[in-house]
Write a protein that binds this DNA or RNA. Sequence first.
DNA 1: TATGGCCTGTGG
DNA 2: CCACAGGCCATA
Length: 260
Amino acid sequence: MPELPEVEHAARVAHDAVHGRVLQRIDALHPAIARDGAVDRAAALVGRRVVAVRRVAKWQEFAFDDGAVLVVHFRMTGDWAVHDDAATPRHGRLALGFADGRTLWLVDPRVLARIAYHAPGAVRRDVAAPDAHDPALTPAALRARFARRRVPIKLALLDQRLLAGLGNIYAAEALWHARIHPATPASRLSLARVTRLLEGIRWALGEALADPGRQQYGESLDRLAVYDREGAPCPRCGAPIRRIVQGARSTYYCGRCQRA
DNA sequence: TATGGCCTGTGG
DNA sequence: CCACAGGCCATA
């Protein structure tokens, strides 16, 4: 449940479910989620109260009343399930148990999700790039971030150090909207094209932010212009959508209206 | 800057 | 059986 709009929604779900509650247990249900030791370290959170859950880029940060922070990244298939009984959901990987029997489950079929624990007062130097849809991010600022980047623009859009929030779906959708070929070197985009791209990014994310419940993993991919639509007609010009591979991942685009 | 790896599941 | 999956990281 990976791109920014879905993470935004998930952080709200988590906040509503557990803020103000005291953590009673944190348990890993699969060795992969505990592999790096963060779950063990996070045991220090037991007995602490959750002040708030907020989204930072594609991370979700649980702020506790002693200043400690639990960070969760869903990667590809993570999601939350809120239970008020003892049931363990299918693919439940991490249990955050609270008073009154409420459990916030990290459900993650592929177990690619990661967590991190930051002790109270820990110095953090992980600086998030601006949100892709942040109104303060101007075309000129974005173009400056693309400068000296000779990678294809599609890959630059996925680079969370440049801007935060786009994933494989919305990167393709944004490029389609802006009529930019995905293989164009990022550094070669004119200011006019970056301006169009930023509009495309906000169009792609805006549609999703307005409809936050959708795109649970494996669910509706309809209403998308190009993603997963190889061979289907471009909604704008009718030419067949093409699929190429960039960075070992599929890119979908219209060969007619997205010029090289 | 490219590649493989992480994991499990699904669909062809 | 194989290819592929909404992400990211470690490694050459």
